[in-house]
């Protein structure tokens, strides 16, 4: 019972902090808009797609995945702030278990990232990208599932870091490789991509997350290009989440 209350209060804290940081919410509109409008317009002709698919349809789930990834990773910064400003100590000396502490933070941050993902989805619909609005409800749990693992990566890295300076490197060494190697910007199948790229992408959990999102939002139109059927995509992402939760709990246990 007290573990549940601890989880709730840690979750709520992440939500409140996020909600109060208005600048972050406002800027979160801008980036996906740039991708969906400018990048998509410029690169629409570069990829050979079946006649029943437009590039904007394909890139929207990709940009949702990218937004989830970047937001999730950025959440790690909160852990570093908490360590630097001492609040982490207040949490760590409480009688709540480290697993609960990790889960409270992780699910809280995931909820925040999910909000960003929803915003992108809505932007996509507002731009008139032909996607059935009903698929939003199928996409929602998948988005959350994707976020759990990604937020966990950020939290684990942050738990090992002592200061904010090093966190910028994550952008270079984690965010961009995961992003570019996930097929978020282009279909991995059916094109003339170099095979090494496709092979590496197969080891990227985000690849399956984006594929799952395309499977539900684009339906049968995506089937010829899909990496895996939906249930395998979900299985891979869920497995990755499970592993990351174990790793994250371990990382938080050794944190001082």
């Amino acid at each position: 019972m007290s573990e549940a209350r601890g989880f709730y209060t840690l979750w709520l804290r992440e939500i409140k902090r996020f909600y109060r940081d208005r600048t972050r919410l406002v800027t979160s509109f801008i980036q996906p808009l740039l991708w969906l409008v400018i990048f998509a317009a410029a690169f629409a002709t570069r990829f050979a797609l079946p006649a029943n698919l437009t590039y904007r349809q394909v890139i929207l789930p990709g940009i949702i995945g990218q937004t989830l990834l970047f937001t999730a990773m950025f959440m790690g910064i909160n852990v570093i702030w908490d360590k630097e400003f001492g609040f982490m100590k207040e949490i760590l000396v409480s009688p709540v278990s480290r697993f609960t502490i990790f889960m409270g933070k992780m699910v809280g941050d995931s909820t925040d990232a999910l909000l960003q993902g929803i915003i992108v989805f809505v932007i996509g619909l507002a731009l008139g990208i032909p996607i059935s609005p009903i698929t939003f409800f199928y996409a929602l749990p998948i988005m959350l599932l994707i976020t759990f693992g990604l937020v966990s990566i950020g939290l684990v890295i942050a738990s090992f870091m002592g200061n904010l300076e090093g966190f910028g490197a994550i952008q270079t060494f984690v965010n961009l490789p995961l992003f570019f190697l996930s097929g978020a910007l282009f279909p991995l199948k059916g094109g003339s991509l170099p095979s090494w790229l496709v092979d590496i992408a197969a080891w990227n959990p985000l690849t399956y997350g984006v594929d799952a999102l395309r499977n539900v939002t684009l339906g049968a139109a995506w089937t010829p290009l899909q990496i895996q059927p939906l249930w395998i995509d979900i299985g891979v992402v869920a497995l990755f989440d499970g592993i990351m939760i174990v790793v994250g709990t371990w990382a938080f246990t050794r944190m001082k």
């Binding site: 804290r13 409140k16 902090r17 109060r20 940081d21 908490d82 400003f85 001492g86 609040f87 982490m88 100590k89 207040e90």
Partner: peptide
């Protein structure tokens, strides 16, 4: 009560 501050300055006192 720690030597260094350990409160969340983005929450209110009551929170």
């Amino acid at each position: 009560v720690f030597q260094d501050p350990s409160i969340d300055d983005r929450l209110t006192g009551r929170e």
